[in-house]
Nucleic acid binder design. Structure first.
Lengths: 347, 347
DNA sequence: TTGAAAGCGCTAACAA
DNA sequence: TTGTTAGCGCTTTCAA
């Protein structure tokens, strides 16, 4: 049986409150007593119960970051931004996958008040749950998702404008038949990006395809497959605007396998500027946004609880590389950016 | 004030125990009562307190995965392996950075029994803490780290043999002056990899440099810097064996900037087979190991508590690409492996 | 099938 | 400076 505060008190010959004060560095306790308590605690390998402390204090000093996919190439910089700000408040951060639907850890943690605030990225947590649990004592920030309510803030990026910029760039390079390689139709960012795509075509008096024929579920394999099918069935476009980089890279793989040259025959532009975009061949032109900032700002909002809904809009930038045919000033050293420069001690 | 179980009981006109049973789907409760309770709970937006439940049950049904660096290109597959097995036991997973030394979240969670078991990768958690907290009720598995004790298991990879294979490969290709680009000297895996390097040289009667002159801290920038310095100071080797891929890629960047051709002038081999190794130019020859398995097996060990120390050794494989000069059968489609094929709904 | 009550391990108000 | 004690919100034993 693990030692509790009572055992420590008994061994040290003091009251439990004294142990609590001593171990929490309360100034009330004399040095002598504190030493005695610490010695007893060590002797018994005492480990305080976080659960009991949280219950008593009614807070956990922990922020939860809930992501669809812990491993994705997209998230690491967001996590870093969150981590840094959480640590600066001397809070803990737990990162948690939303994988698993109704009974996912994320849902449980959110419902059971394991954390004092949450940052949510991805669509696996339904709006209803967020609205239900958000409160003054439980602020929530959603990333790249529109959701307005008290104590729910959002950090958005200019999805529509970014897509508009991407497609306009293609048009300026002389492309006329530009296909939209779509992510999940229900996804917020996907639909915004589609809107930007349509606006660019419309403003340049180009034909907007009546329906979305390429759907890649935001996955590399999805982009690959749907473009494969397209190549078998119909006339090629002269450009593809993919709603994210993974699909763009999948599309390029399919095109290459089909003997289609990128960018000569078909130009490709993605969205997100994921870290290895510079390394695919040809390197990927894309729309970038600052992921670190996104995480850091979101976390500031969590600590800065306000009733009024508050949404912050971050800009996107066109990042020109080789997949769209314009020979941008490709910086060979860009490579170094893909690495996280933090402490690492593990191979 | 958030509603508690008492409030629900009052509103439903039943005892708190009844509420508890009803909400936890105990078969004792009549359907009628259960409905009444559920209605009251909804009415009050009742959210059970995980802290109270954990305190009472003396467990959290949560496993902690503690990593140096949540964002690194190395970890995502490990996380996936862990996630899957944890979920299959209907447990929760929290991933947590060890960043922050003494007061890091990781240390706190470990000490305060927030989790029922832990998987630790990286050196930021000292042996002493691990040994202190490991117990039957708190199994710990360390990844790629040798630590023997009751209730501490380890999952290792054949670091020494892998390094030996890498260097032997270089020797077979005719390289004779092979430098070791080292990670932190104190790192376990680094020293094993160094041992393998030395053994390969010795067995082939090649000169082993008397001291390690290249130290890159396992970082891309570290590899870059130290190789830059080397190029300015001394005669070039004809090959570099880097203790991890990041440093290898940094080394290649430095070499390229110095007008040195890879692999013609200097061959480079890394270690770990990180996901974008196929995409750097030239693509990186490296030593691979299965990171998903590592995570999955570690998690099995956590659930499979045993007193006896138990260590599992996973093999490594030479992955031949272009940076070492041997034209392996480079599979263009390898590209697709770098993507996680799970659910993603977020751009 | 339901209720009463003990108690998980801690913090903090209050008393001494 | 230290001790006594109530109670955080649950689960679960035992009684009804």
């Amino acid at each position: 049986m693990a030692a509790t505060i009572k055992d420590v008190a008994k061994m040290a010959g003091v009251a439990v409150s004294t142990v609590s004060y001593a171990l929490n560095n309360s100034p009330k306790i004399s040095e002598e007593t504190r030493k005695k308590v610490i010695r007893a605690a060590e002797e018994l390998s005492y480990r305080p119960s976080g659960a009991a402390r949280n219950l008593k204090k009614r807070k956990s000093e922990t922020i939860g970051l809930f992501l669809n996919d812990l491993g994705g190439p997209f998230y690491s910089q967001v996590i870093e931004g969150v981590q840094e700000v959480v640590a600066s408040h001397d809070y803990n951060l737990i990162v948690c996958s939303t994988y698993g639907g109704e009974n996912s850890s994320a849902n449980r943690f959110l419902r059971e008040k394991f954390v004092d605030g949450a940052i949510i990225m991805g669509t696996a947590i339904p709006d209803s749950l967020i609205l239900q649990v958000a409160a003054e004592s439980f602020p929530i920030v959603v990333l790249d998702r529109e959701l307005k309510s008290d104590y729910v803030h959002s950090v958005l990026i200019t999805n529509e404008q970014g897509a508009y910029d991407a497609v306009t760039h293609l048009i300026k390079l002389g492309r006329r038949r530009i296909e939209f390689l779509s992510g999940p139709l229900a996804a917020y960012d996907n639909s915004k990006r589609y809107d930007g795509y349509k606006r660019a075509l419309t403003e340049h008096s180009l034909h907007v395809p009546p329906k979305i024929s390429l759907q890649g579920r935001y996955l590399e394999a999805g982009g690959y497959q749907t473009v494969k099918v397209m190549m078998a069935c119909k006339r090629l476009p002269d450009a593809i605007f993919a709603a994210n980089d993974e699909m763009a890279i999948g599309a390029m793989r399919a095109l290459r396998e089909g003997g289609i040259r990128v960018p000569e025959d078909v130009a490709v532009v993605g969205f997100d500027n994921i870290s290895f975009g510079p390394f695919v061949r040809p390197s990927l032109t894309t729309i970038g946004h600052s992921k670190y900032e996104m995480g850091a700002i979101a976390t500031q909002l969590v600590f800065n609880v306000q009733k009024e809904e508050n949404s912050i809009l971050l800009p996107t930038q066109l990042v020109i590389r080789q997949s769209c045919g314009f020979k941008g000033t490709h910086n060979e050293n860009e490579e170094s950016y893909i690495f996280h420069e933090g402490r690492r001690n593990q191979g």
